[in-house]
Design a protein around this nucleic acid. Sequence first.
DNA 1: GTAACAGGGTGATATAAATCACCTTTTTCT
DNA 2: AGAAAAAGGTGATTTATATCACCCTGTTAC
Lengths: 231, 231
Amino acid sequence: MKVSDPKNGIQEVLDNSWIFKDFSAEDKVAVAENSSLVRYHSKDILFRQHTRTSHAMYVVSGLVKVYKESGAGHSVTLKIISGNQFVGLDTIYAESEYQYSGSAIVDTIVLIIDFGTFNNLVLSNGRFALDLIRMLSKDSLYIFQRLNSQTHKQLPGRIADVLLYLSEEIFHSYAFEFPLTRHELAELAGTTKESFIRTINEFKHDKIIQLEGRKVEIKSLDIVKILSELG
Amino acid sequence: MKVSDPKNGIQEVLDNSWIFKDFSAEDKVAVAENSSLVRYHSKDILFRQHTRTSHAMYVVSGLVKVYKESGAGHSVTLKIISGNQFVGLDTIYAESEYQYSGSAIVDTIVLIIDFGTFNNLVLSNGRFALDLIRMLSKDSLYIFQRLNSQTHKQLPGRIADVLLYLSEEIFHSYAFEFPLTRHELAELAGTTKESFIRTINEFKHDKIIQLEGRKVEIKSLDIVKILSELG
DNA sequence: GTAACAGGGTGATATAAATCACCTTTTTCT
DNA sequence: AGAAAAAGGTGATTTATATCACCCTGTTAC
């Protein structure tokens, strides 16, 4: 990681990102003076499970994988964070140690804000607090869906979910490039590399998707949605 | 459901529950004038998935099961809410329709607060907003754990988790009575009634727990914890 | 009063997907 | 450049657990 051109970059973020742009001048100054803009490249770790929490992190651009590691090399990917969202908010508010890890999956710029400053903003700026509550709520609901998926759907349904998640929530296009290895995609679908590969290749054979290496295109959205719904 | 002795009951709740008790006099009045105290009995539904959200609900006493129904009679129980917590906060903040259902599993008293009033409190009372953020965050982390469990642990581990959850988080005792049928417990463990019964009866045979009908007692906490950790 | 249902329970069978054991190709490292 | 490691892939085998098909008991309903 390396710190980029300091103050000017921060000011730009504060003036453009939806969450900060309507802040009062004083609030912007408070953030600007107590944060730093950091650039991570692919595979860099932003924070690691079981280490002490210390800052609030706002992803300016890029993609971050949030995952939980539990003994024996098993991991679950909880979510992918794209630009203009906070990472790790829940864990810094609920525990003194990170309850999951976060790593950049492409080059990523993060605004790292001093926790005390951040917290004072929550206390004094109701609008900001409300926005955070909305974001945390949306996150919760997504994980509820994941839990439901993992509990009741079988593989094809879960893989359809991954395809829909990446296309609709992350890339906003039905043609995109997997930013993750098959192994990591499997962790997002709650399965193993082998099973993921087999199932996605079946999708390809059945012409539901087009697939070459990491390039995918959903060809039959209806079928993907049916697979997701029927589990 | 029936509305109980109105104003006096509400005042008592506001003066005693940790979240409201330090409110200013005006804030308490605002809540008191825009909420009602409702008593549900076991099996009553507080709110149902896919219906419009409208109020904030604070569980004064009792137990509420929060569950997601997905086609074909499959449900997952997301969490059990006990006294002095909000139910459904995330869904009212993120969506216009409930994303899950909530039903009382024992007699339960709920303070139902007008959403507009509630929202104004969030905007004007930073302390309150912060408390909500902390609660939402804790909830999120719990579901992350559940997702991890469901993805990587096999049945004995998940059932150990249910036992630990109920004893440590809900009843605060290693001897308690299941407030749910075996079928519902299975939905909390992400399995079927049959598999739940078999596994819990094995625990009984192995003297890890004592079990008679709905009465359970964890006899060997170490083993339960090991089962939970090893999955 | 007995039918019907919900709850608790058991055994046999089926099956989805994990695991194991490889192989090939591509990328990374020194 | 060449070795080592990571990524992508395939087939055979194993296994945990869902599913099916029941049974019994107690409660609720008409």
